[in-house]
Amino acid sequence: MLTIILGILEEGLLYSIMTLGVYITYKILDFPDLSVDGTFPLGGAVTVVLISRGMNPLLTLLFAFFVGAMAGIITGIIHVKFKVRDLLSGIIVMTGLYSVNLRIAGRSNIPIFSYETIFENKFIDKYIPEKLVPYIGLIIIIIIVLIVKALLDRYLETKSGYLLRAAGDNEVLVTSLAKDKGLVKIIGLAIANALVALAGAIYSQKQGFFEISNGTGTVVIGLASVIIGTKAFQNIGFIKTTSAVILGSIIYKACVAIAISLGLPASDLRLITSTLFLIILIVSQDRMRRVKDA
């Protein structure tokens, strides 16, 4: 039981970093960004290649973050400057990134079992007591998530963050403030994809190898988590939306873990995901209608 909860928390929190990225594009910018299916493995490819060349694993996360941001900027430029529709810009970047990722990695599968990662290194071997070892993965992920969340929350309170939120709700406001709404969108996409690539990098380090196919379906997981989180916790005032999104990611992973644990075949999991999706949407609408009627 403990292992299963530990597994859910690890996976859920790890993916919540990606989910925060999807939250920025989908919820704040109202931009359904499909490029994340490419940026998730992009982060993995970058971190794994750099680690196998001997770079400090923590430092590789920074590189993954920035390379992810660059991918986001490209999606943004395609959309804003070349006026390609949002959905299509994402698809273009996602498709192209598949080849780019293979180029960066050199091949489709790279193991880093024999290298140090943020989860396995001399420091942990030396200073972490034996008893804590099974939890160290979770502890490290919690620390990263807390840092990311704190930075993101602070950013959203800044002027640039306000503009970001305005760009999704009310583009006219951004223009009336004499700000370039296109630039705001590009910044949003950059931050979002940077977070997704960061999550992909941490994921690859956690499982000990990079595998190109692991990006497929990232956007579905992200959207499901964002919707579960924001809908399930929308009426609970003291929970910030970013926290709700993180909780959504954990709930999503818990549902998948429970389904697997009950012996449901993997081929049915997508159906379960979509059903869960639908239930959450219906429940939240149900409640909204009641509020309106009253």
Binding site: E11, E211, V256, A257
Partner: peptide, 10 residues
């Protein structure tokens, strides 16, 4: 692969 990971955790 992501499901594969969760199968192992299970």
């Amino acid at each position: 692969g992501v499901i594969g990971n969760q199968i192992i955790t299970n």
